[in-house]
């Protein structure tokens, strides 16, 4: 099957480093015979590869076999040292978890208590269950929350209609 130029370019990238398989090499050769664009691309890729290969024998990277010390003497000392000292095993510390749970519970309890004291301060009479407020003769549709004088006369307190099975919830304004 004939290959297009983009597929051939992939082969060219491999060919410049001699990484093509025999059948791929044949495909590349037959395409390059007909395609001048791919031939020039191959030439450019070969130049780039030659540049890259200048690093292969870069003298800065060559390890001086005479003057470079082997790591084995110090490594062997380190191995001996580790063998001599007992290995530190990591153990799960349950105390930290228990302490965290206690702290968290304490924080939750404190928060709940402070919320309830805030409610008592803002509404000393507390909320009144809906059933005691509603007139029993009213139909469920007309059961609007009635305001009790002295308790619910705060105009900022917004109350919504409740159905008989619902329990009124009072939230402080700070929410």
């Amino acid at each position: 099957m004939a290959m297009n130029c983009s597929e051939v370019k992939h082969l060219i990238h491999l060919d410049v480093g001699d990484d093509l398989r025999a059948e791929e090499d044949l495909q590349l050769s037959s395409h390059m015979e007909q395609c001048s664009d791919c031939r020039s691309y191959h030439a450019g890729m070969s130049s780039a590869m030659a540049l890259l290969l200048t690093l292969r024998d870069d003298p800065a990277m060559v390890v001086d076999s005479v003057n470079t010390k082997s790591v084995w003497p110090s490594l062997s000392r380190e191995i001996q040292r580790r063998k001599a000292s007992p290995r530190v095993t990591r153990k799960f510390n349950l105390q930290v978890v228990a302490l965290s749970v206690c702290s968290f519970s304490l924080a939750v309890v404190t928060m709940v208590q402070s919320l309830s004291s805030m409610r008592d301060y803002r509404d000393p009479a507390g909320f009144v269950p809906a059933q005691t407020v509603f007139n029993q003769s009213q139909t469920p549709q007309t059961k609007m929350l009635q305001f009790r004088p002295g308790v619910n006369d705060d105009p900022s307190a917004v109350r919504t209609a409740l159905l008989p099975h619902e329990t009124p919830v009072w939230l402080p304004q700070s929410f």
């Binding site: 990238h13 480093g17 890729m45 780039a48």
Partner: peptide
């Protein structure tokens, strides 16, 4: 690895 190798050589050429 073969795919990455091809891409890496292409990237090198483009960067150069």
């Amino acid at each position: 690895i073969r795919w990455r190798l091809a891409e890496a050589r292409k990237m090198f050429r483009e960067a150069w």
